[in-house]
């Protein structure tokens, strides 16, 4: 199989992100200091997670419109990758919080919201595990997946914004609050978001191919 162009792009973007993320100049801020570089590794995880979950939801909708196990496999693979990105986002956030807030888990509304969102998707995998019939499993989990994505919206996008928080970018949009972001950081941040998200898509496509090969040889 031909090595697609966007895979080269992913590699290039991530090499640039890692090199630039560690070496380029960043603004000196009190308390935050060098941990500001977490922006290149922590924040893209959430962008990636939302994108992967959204893709998974889209494939679940496509499954309900026109049932085929192919769509189901795609939806699951993207949900798994979204889950991985969410876990990495939480872990990187905890490492960052350990140095700036003083403890890894601070009970910040954004931390709690993210943890609950992951619980929602863990329930998705539990649901898949508890249905034996393949088509039944695909349909029930597709319905739950769509419902879970909708239920996640207030949890991640609305409620954290209604409460005060110590999380950077607070009092506005935590993801897109780029108005006060230093221009030098944008040079690495946007490629980082694209690179990490593409990496997620890449791994997901590999998982889909593995699942297809397994079902062919089963």
């Amino acid at each position: 199989m031909k090595f697609a162009w966007w895979k080269w792009l992913t590699i290039a973007l991530l090499i640039y992100t890692i090199a630039g993320g560690f070496l380029f100049a960043v603004p000196r801020l009190h308390i935050v200091n060098e941990t500001i570089r977490a922006l290149y590794f922590h924040v893209p995880m959430w962008f990636g997670m939302i994108f992967l979950f959204l893709t998974s939801t889209v494939y679940s909708i496509r499954y309900l419109r026109k049932p085929s196990l192919q769509q189901d496999v795609v939806a699951v693979s993207f949900a798994q990758l979204g889950m991985l990105f969410g876990l990495l986002g939480i872990v990187t956030g905890m490492i960052w919080a350990n140095y700036t807030w003083g403890s890894p888990w601070h009970g910040d509304p954004k931390q709690n919201g993210a943890a609950i969102a992951l619980l929602v998707y863990m329930a998705y995998f539990v649901l898949r595990g508890s249905v034996q019939n393949e088509e039944q499993r695909a349909r029930l989990s597709a319905v739950y997946n769509i419902f879970a994505f909708v239920a996640m919206i207030p949890l991640i996008f609305v409620i954290p914004r209604m409460t005060s928080s110590m999380h950077p970018g607070s009092g506005g949009n935590p993801g897109f609050n780029m108005y006060d972001l230093d221009n030098r950081m944008r040079l690495v941040f946007y490629p980082a978001v694209a690179g990490w998200t593409l990496l997620g898509v890449w791994i997901a496509t590999l998982r889909i191919r593995i699942a297809q090969l397994e079902s062919e040889h089963a």
Binding site: I116, L119, V120, M122, A123, V126, L127, S130, A151
Partner: peptide, 14 residues
Amino acid sequence: SILMPVLGFPITIS
């Protein structure tokens, strides 16, 4: 009976 709380709790937290 087990699945109902597992699915329900996270969704109702908000």
